[in-house]
Simulated scan of single mutants.
Amino acid sequence: MRILLITAAAVFALDQITKVIVVHLMGLARRGEIEVLPPWINFRMAWNEGINFGLFAGQSEWTRWVLIGIALAITAWVLQWVWRDRPGRWGLVSAGLLTGGALGNVVDRLLYGAVADFLNMTCCGIENPYAFNVADISIFAGAIGLVLFTGRKEMA
């Protein structure tokens, strides 16, 4: 379980540090957009009040608290699951990625009322209107890892 906790703490710290640097110190919240490696990578400020791709955004203040509750419930369920089933190293890393990312976005909702998204990537002439953050990447990677690296039992 130690690897899970270390991974979660590292993801949480990286997520919060990048948000402080990009959103506040670099002034993205004020500027709205900063070109990094145009046209492929840009910082584009987006305050996401909903879930992925802004789904359920703008509903009301209660949505914020429901989403915080859901994130905490899923985090608790994942922790209980891996504690009970004891997956291998990669299963624990995956759970740490998901947990650290979810808690990073929970902190944003508590502090700002919305998740601070700022990474925008475009490729191959396709303009991507969406932004995301380190926590979002970690949640996605952790969920995929849990699918790939857990649930297999050795056949005797």
Rank of each mutant, 00 (worst) to 15 (best):
R86E: 15
E127F: 13
G101A: 03
C123I: 14
S60D: 08
T63E: 11
D108I: 01
L98T: 02
K153L: 12
L28K: 05
G125L: 12
E35G: 10
D85V: 06
F12E: 00
L79R: 03
I144A: 12
V36D: 00
F118S: 02
S138T: 01
R84V: 10
M45P: 05
A141H: 10
F140Y: 12
L103P: 05
L103V: 01
N105S: 08
L4T: 15
D108T: 00
M26L: 15
Y130W: 14
Q59S: 15
I41M: 11
E127M: 12
V93T: 11
F43V: 03
M1Q: 07
T150C: 07
G69F: 09
V78P: 08
D108A: 03
V147H: 05
T75W: 06
W83I: 05
A73T: 11
R89M: 15
I34C: 08
L98N: 01
T122H: 12
L67A: 04
P38F: 09
E33H: 07
W65E: 00
G69A: 10
V82T: 11
V36E: 00
A114F: 10
W81S: 11
A8M: 01
L110A: 06
A102C: 05
W81I: 06
R109Y: 11
V106G: 00
G69H: 12
V11E: 01
N133S: 09
G142Y: 06
P129R: 14
W81G: 04
I51M: 13
R64W: 05
A114D: 05
A135K: 00
L72M: 13
A9V: 14
L92M: 15
L148W: 11
E61S: 13
V82I: 15
R44Y: 12
R64H: 09
M121F: 15
G142V: 08
D117V: 04
I70S: 06
T18A: 07
A141Y: 10
L146T: 02
G96H: 02
D136K: 00
E154Q: 14
H24G: 07
A141W: 10
W83G: 14
A95P: 08
I68F: 01
W81H: 13
A9R: 08
I137F: 15
F149T: 08
A29V: 13
N42R: 14
G58T: 07
G151D: 06
G54V: 10
G104F: 02
D117C: 03
L111Q: 02
A116K: 07
F132Q: 04
D117N: 01
G58S: 09
A102S: 14
L5N: 08
K153Y: 09
L98D: 01
L97Q: 01
I70A: 10
R84L: 13
D108G: 01
V66W: 08
G145W: 05
C124P: 11
N42W: 07
G27K: 12
A143S: 13
F53L: 15
A102R: 04
V107K: 00
W83R: 10
T122I: 04
G125H: 10
W77V: 12
W83L: 13
V107T: 04
V11M: 02
I51F: 13
W90A: 09
G142R: 02
N48M: 04
I6D: 02
G142T: 10
Q16H: 11
N52V: 15
R31C: 08
G27E: 02
A156N: 09
G104E: 04
G50F: 13
A135Q: 06
S138P: 06
F56Y: 12
C124R: 02
G96C: 09
M26V: 04
P87A: 03
I17L: 14
P39E: 09
D108L: 03
